[in-house]
């Protein structure tokens, strides 16, 4: 409670904003790894060390978080990136300066919203809820505003990090089993997404998710109409 919590949360906020403006995929993956590290540290800095040393379950969850979200997932993503042979997010649906502006707006909106919400006064940090909301919203924004399937996977990871920040920051306890289950799910999800990205790049010669629009409900005679599929992509 010596300000370290605020420092970690502020670092998370900065990583969110840089993620919204990052164009090179490798850079994005490194930022996602940084978020994983910060997320793993968060329960440790929130813990009140003067009163008692933390119990082993907390340490185990923190260690598992760091191993999976900071090491394993970025490695999987980097591998998928190399195999799909992409380096940059070219021509995103929203430009980088515009993205940064939107990200700032989202952050401002979350702070305003949380100031109105009246968070319980016993929560460890006033920053936790707004940072969690910002991270979730920016994750969703990345999923919507980027073309490459792999960037969407990074966006999902950010979204999930935001939910985890909310859980840790509000000191909500899942229990060890569920916590590890969630981590395992996220790990397998990114693993499967990596395989999907590879197969898509092999089959289509690109991984632009907005061009994945063959399926849809077209009228029988007008096969060229893809408006319905575009909607599917966005949601």
């Amino acid at each position: 409670m010596t300000g370290w919590t605020e420092i970690v949360l502020a670092a998370l906020l900065i990583s969110d904003l840089s993620l919204a403006a990052a164009s090179r995929l490798y850079h994005c993956i490194k930022l996602a790894a940084l978020q994983g590290l910060l997320l793993g540290l968060l329960p440790l800095v929130i813990w009140n060390w003067q009163e008692s040393p933390p119990h082993w379950e907390l340490l185990l969850v923190a260690a598992a978080n760091i191993v999976i979200k900071c090491v394993a997932l970025p490695c999987l993503l980097a591998r998928a990136m190399r195999r799909a042979n992409v380096r940059r997010e070219l021509e995103p649906l929203a430009g980088y300066s515009a993205s940064l502006l939107i990200a700032l707006t989202l952050a401002g909106a979350s702070f305003y919203f949380c100031s109105r919400l009246g968070i319980a006064p016993d929560s460890p940090s006033l920053l936790a809820a707004p940072v969690a909301f910002t991270t979730m919203l920016i994750g969703l924004f990345i999923i919507i505003a980027r073309r490459k399937a792999i960037t969407q996977a990074i966006g999902f990871l950010t979204f999930e990090n935001g939910i985890a920040v909310f859980g840790t920051g509000m000191m909500l306890d899942w229990g060890l089993l569920v916590e590890l289950g969630i981590l395992l799910d996220v790990f397998v999800l990114v693993f499967v997404m990596g395989i999907a990205v590879f197969q898509i790049s092999r089959e289509f010669d690109h991984i632009d998710a907005d061009r994945l629009n063959r399926l849809g409900d077209r009228p029988v005679h007008a096969a060229g109409d893809t408006a319905e599929s575009a909607e599917v992509n966005e949601s």
């Binding site: 999907a196 197969q199 898509i200 399926l215």
Partner: peptide, 18 residues
Amino acid sequence: RSPGALEAMWKYLLICSV
């Protein structure tokens, strides 16, 4: 491994996970 099936799988993964 048809294009359609891969597209469906990606949408299923992403939309359901979010």
